[in-house]
Structure formats: structure tokens, C-alpha cells
Amino acid sequence: MNSKRSGMGLNARRNFEGWLFLVPAVVLIVCMSLIPAVMAFVTSFTTGTGANTQWGGLSNYMRILKDKVFLQSIKNCFFYLIIQVPIMLVLALILASMLNNPKLKCKGILRTCIFLPCATSLVAYAIIFRTLFATDGLINLVLTSIGILNAPYNFLAHPLSAKIVIIIALIWRWTGYNMVFYLSGLQNIDYSVYEAARIDGASPFQIFTKITIPLLKPTILLTAIMSTNGTLQLFDESVNLTNGGPANASITMSHYIYNQTFQGVPKFGYTSAMSFLILFMVAVLAFIQMKVGDKRD
């Protein structure tokens, strides 16, 4: 910030006004998220089921280490994170920079179409994805007819392919969503910068890496943190596409926590402890991302 110092009085006042901007949002977050979170944190030190609980110290956190299903779900989530998030964000960036070309016609329709997947109802898209990847589905039909597969493959019944179906579904659903933020970020960049670079003989790739990406850095950071958070808390696809199967091979942490909280005999202490482990993992990753990407010039 390069504001000139014009007397402490004015600066202090401005600083005070700056805090005023934050008050409604911060108060709401404190009441609606932080206080319940602290209460949940306290709960995570109690053991027992239902209404019969007692103080358990760190035992819930120790229990996590022995929970094979939860450990499996951690692995699954990181698998999704490492493969899906980079592919999705790069795709979104490419699509956004293509759509930022003023010479392109029908942009409105194209943008809307590409945005649509995230607005598409989960119920419908889960059914259609399962139908597509079914043994007698379209994907198998194509793959067998061009000779990649000898016999139809039951994608959802095998551990690795089930996870890949989830990744494909996630990319399909969220690429357009992230593209929207890049598009809106690109609007704040003057198109003449591109024109100038092009006249200087810069290749499209150079323009992309030297101009687009640096200028979009804050937005990229935002989407990276949000996608990390979203993937580690993934729930919908695990429940609706594969139901965690086959044999927990695609179950996510949130799905398991939900099952343990509301489907089975409730263990609020244990599920809170698992939730805080998620918080810890996301926070560490977000911290690293902030360190790398949240520097002001």
C-alpha cells in the first residue's frame, strides 16, 4: 500500500473505518462458524455414543490412527486432490483465456454452457454418469468398438476406475465454475496489454504464462484454496456416484464422518475429532498456498 502519510489523525481514522467494513461479516463468521467450531473442538475430547458421553482426553485422536476406513478415506481424498485439482484449474484457465478473446462470437452462450455443469442437479448428473460408465453404457460401447477394451469393463466396481470416474465427474462439474472466477478476474486486465504483447511478437503461450497467470495470481490462489478445501471435504460424488464403493475404495472423509454421525450409532466426539483432522490438513495446505501466492507486489 502506497498511501501517503498525511498525519496520524487521518490514518487512525481511516484504519478505524477499515475495521468498520469488516464488522458485519466478521461478527457473523465468529457467531456462525468459530463459536460452534470451538464447541465441536471441546466435543472432540469426549467419548461415548449418543447421550452417554464422558471426558476422553486425546483418545478420539488416537482412535483415528486405528480406523482403517478413515485412513483409507484420507488416502482417497488426497488421490482426488493431487490428480483432479491441477487438471481442473489448468483447464479452467485455458478455457477462460480462450473466452477472453474479443473476436470470439457467441461468447455468452459458450460461457453459459460451460458454467452449467455446476448448476446441474446432483441427482440427475449422478444418474447420467453412472449410466454412461455402466457395463452396457456409452463409454464401454465406444471403448469396445474402437478396440481399446476387449470386453465391457465395470468401471464402478473396481477400486481404481471408480476413483477415476469420480475425478472425471469432478472435473466435469467444477471446471466451468472455476472458469467463471478467472473470467471475472481477466476483466480487470486491460485487453490492450495483450495487444501490445502480441505486437511485440510474444507467442500465445508466452502471453499466457507471462501476462495472464501473474495477473490472475490472486484469483488462482483463491480457487486453489477453495478447491483444496472442497476436495478434502468432498461428499456429494462419494455418496451419489459410487456410495463409497467398491469396498470403501472411493469413500471420502466427509462421507465417512456423515455416516458415523447420522447413519450409524452417533459418536459425536469421534466425528468431531475426525473433522478437526480435516481442518488441520486443509489449513496446512492453505497456509503453504498463501505463503506462495498471497504476496503483495
Partner: peptide, 20 residues
Amino acid sequence: VILMSMMIPFVSMMVPLFRM
């Protein structure tokens, strides 16, 4: 701190929030 508040699965905050 605000960012951290979104990193806890909502499932675990429902009971405390309901009490409040």
C-alpha cells in the same frame, strides 16, 4: 482465521449450532 472456519465439515458444527 476466517479462512479456517470453512475448513471444518459442517456435519460437525450442526449440533453446536443447533444448541446456540
